[in-house]
Computed example of a mutant assay.
Amino acid sequence: MTPDSLFAVSGPIALAGWLALAAGIVFDRPFLRDRVAGLLIPLLLSAAYTVLILIFWWTADGGFGSLAEVQTLFTQGWVALAGWVHYLAYDLFIGAFVSRQIMERKLSRLFLVPILPLTFLFGPIGFLLAQGLLLTRIGDAS
Score class of each variant (00 low, 15 high):
residue 1 M to D: 12
residue 1 M to Y: 09
residue 4 D to Y: 15
residue 4 D to I: 10
residue 5 S to Q: 13
residue 5 S to C: 03
residue 5 S to V: 11
residue 6 L to K: 00
residue 6 L to G: 01
residue 9 V to P: 02
residue 10 S to H: 01
residue 10 S to L: 04
residue 11 G to T: 08
residue 11 G to S: 12
residue 11 G to D: 09
residue 13 I to Y: 08
residue 16 A to N: 03
residue 17 G to P: 00
residue 18 W to P: 00
residue 18 W to E: 07
residue 18 W to G: 02
residue 19 L to C: 12
residue 19 L to D: 03
residue 20 A to I: 06
residue 20 A to P: 00
residue 21 L to H: 00
residue 21 L to K: 04
residue 22 A to G: 12
residue 23 A to W: 13
residue 24 G to W: 07
residue 25 I to P: 03
residue 25 I to Y: 04
residue 26 V to P: 01
residue 29 R to I: 12
residue 30 P to V: 08
residue 32 L to K: 02
residue 33 R to T: 04
residue 34 D to T: 06
residue 38 G to C: 07
residue 42 P to R: 03
residue 44 L to M: 08
residue 46 S to M: 13
residue 46 S to V: 10
residue 48 A to L: 10
residue 48 A to D: 02
residue 48 A to T: 14
residue 48 A to V: 15
residue 49 Y to E: 14
residue 51 V to W: 15
residue 51 V to G: 11
residue 52 L to R: 02
residue 54 L to M: 13
residue 55 I to V: 15
residue 55 I to R: 15
residue 57 W to H: 12
residue 57 W to M: 14
residue 60 A to M: 01
residue 61 D to H: 14
residue 62 G to T: 02
residue 63 G to F: 07
residue 63 G to D: 01
residue 65 G to T: 01
residue 65 G to H: 02
residue 66 S to Q: 01
residue 67 L to P: 15
residue 69 E to T: 06
residue 70 V to A: 05
residue 71 Q to T: 11
residue 72 T to S: 09
residue 74 F to K: 00
residue 80 A to N: 06
residue 81 L to E: 02
residue 82 A to S: 10
residue 83 G to S: 09
residue 83 G to C: 03
residue 85 V to A: 04
residue 85 V to Y: 03
residue 86 H to F: 03
residue 87 Y to G: 00
residue 89 A to R: 04
residue 89 A to S: 13
residue 90 Y to Q: 11
residue 90 Y to P: 10
residue 92 L to Y: 02
residue 93 F to D: 02
residue 95 G to M: 05
residue 95 G to W: 03
residue 95 G to I: 01
residue 96 A to H: 10
residue 97 F to Q: 13
residue 97 F to I: 04
residue 98 V to R: 00
residue 98 V to Q: 02
residue 99 S to Y: 00
residue 99 S to K: 01
residue 101 Q to L: 09
residue 101 Q to R: 14
residue 102 I to H: 04
residue 102 I to S: 05
residue 102 I to A: 12
residue 103 M to D: 06
residue 104 E to Y: 12
residue 105 R to E: 15
residue 105 R to D: 14
residue 106 K to T: 06
residue 109 R to N: 13
residue 111 F to K: 08
residue 112 L to F: 04
residue 112 L to N: 05
residue 112 L to W: 08
residue 113 V to C: 03
residue 115 I to F: 09
residue 116 L to V: 05
residue 116 L to I: 13
residue 116 L to P: 00
residue 117 P to K: 11
residue 117 P to G: 12
residue 118 L to T: 05
residue 118 L to H: 09
residue 118 L to K: 08
residue 120 F to H: 06
residue 122 F to G: 03
residue 123 G to K: 05
residue 127 F to Q: 12
residue 128 L to C: 13
residue 129 L to K: 14
residue 129 L to E: 07
residue 129 L to Y: 14
residue 131 Q to W: 14
residue 132 G to E: 03
residue 132 G to I: 08
residue 135 L to T: 10
residue 135 L to S: 09
residue 135 L to Q: 11
residue 137 R to G: 06
residue 139 G to K: 05
residue 140 D to W: 12
residue 140 D to Q: 15
residue 141 A to W: 14
residue 141 A to N: 15
residue 142 S to R: 15
